[in-house]
Computed example of a mutant assay.
Amino acid sequence: MNRLNLLIGTFVLVAGLVSCSTNMTKIERTPNTEELLLKMKKMPEKGIMFGHHDDPVYGIGWDGDLNRSDVKSVCGDYPAVMAFDLGHIELGKSTNLDNVSFDRIKNEILAQHQRGGIISLSWHLNSPVTGKDSWDVSDTTVVASVLSGGVNHEKFLGWLDKVADFMNSLVMPDGAKVPILFRPWHEHTGSWFWWGKNLCTTQQYKDLWRLTHNRLQEKGVRNVLYAYSTGSEPKDTAEYLERYPGDDVIDLLGFDTYQMDRQQYIENMERSLTILTAVGKAHDKPIAVTETGYEAIPDSTWWTETLLPIISKYPISYVLVWRNAREKEGHYYAPYPGQVSAGDFVKFYQSPKTLFLTDLKNLKF
Rank of each mutant, 00 (worst) to 15 (best):
L36I: 13
L36R: 04
L37P: 00
L37T: 05
L37R: 08
L38M: 04
K39A: 07
M40P: 00
M40D: 02
M40H: 00
K41E: 08
K41M: 04
K42R: 08
K42Y: 02
K42T: 07
E45Y: 02
K46N: 10
G47H: 07
G47R: 08
G47A: 09
M49P: 00
H53N: 15
H53Y: 11
D55M: 12
D55W: 09
P56W: 01
V57D: 02
V57G: 03
G59E: 12
W62Y: 13
W62A: 10
W62R: 05
D63N: 15
G64S: 13
G64N: 11
L66N: 07
L66A: 14
L66F: 09
R68M: 13
S69M: 09
S69E: 11
S69H: 11
D70S: 11
V71A: 06
K72A: 14
S73I: 04
S73W: 10
V74S: 08
V74D: 05
C75L: 14
C75S: 12
Y78W: 15
Y78D: 13
P79I: 06
P79D: 10
A80N: 05
A80K: 00
A83S: 15
F84E: 07
D85V: 02
G87F: 03
G87M: 04
H88V: 03
I89P: 02
I89Q: 03
E90N: 09
L91Q: 15
G92D: 14
K93A: 14
K93S: 12
K93G: 02
S94N: 12
S94P: 00
S94K: 14
S94Q: 13
T95R: 05
T95D: 13
N96V: 01
L97G: 09
L97C: 14
D98E: 07
N99E: 13
N99Q: 11
V100H: 01
S101V: 07
D103I: 05
R104G: 02
R104E: 01
I105S: 02
N107F: 02
N107I: 01
L110M: 11
L110R: 03
L110G: 03
A111C: 03
A111P: 00
Q112G: 03
R115A: 12
R115H: 06
G116R: 06
G117I: 02
I118V: 15
I118P: 00
I118R: 01
I119G: 00
I119W: 01
S120Q: 15
S120G: 06
S120K: 13
W123R: 02
W123M: 08
H124F: 09
L125T: 09
N126Q: 09
N126C: 06
S127E: 14
S127I: 13
P128H: 07
T130V: 09
T130P: 04
T130C: 06
G131V: 09
K132P: 00
D133I: 06
D133T: 13
S134N: 03
W135I: 02
W135N: 10
D136G: 11
D136T: 08
D136C: 11
V137Y: 04
V137I: 15
S138F: 09
D139I: 03
D139K: 14
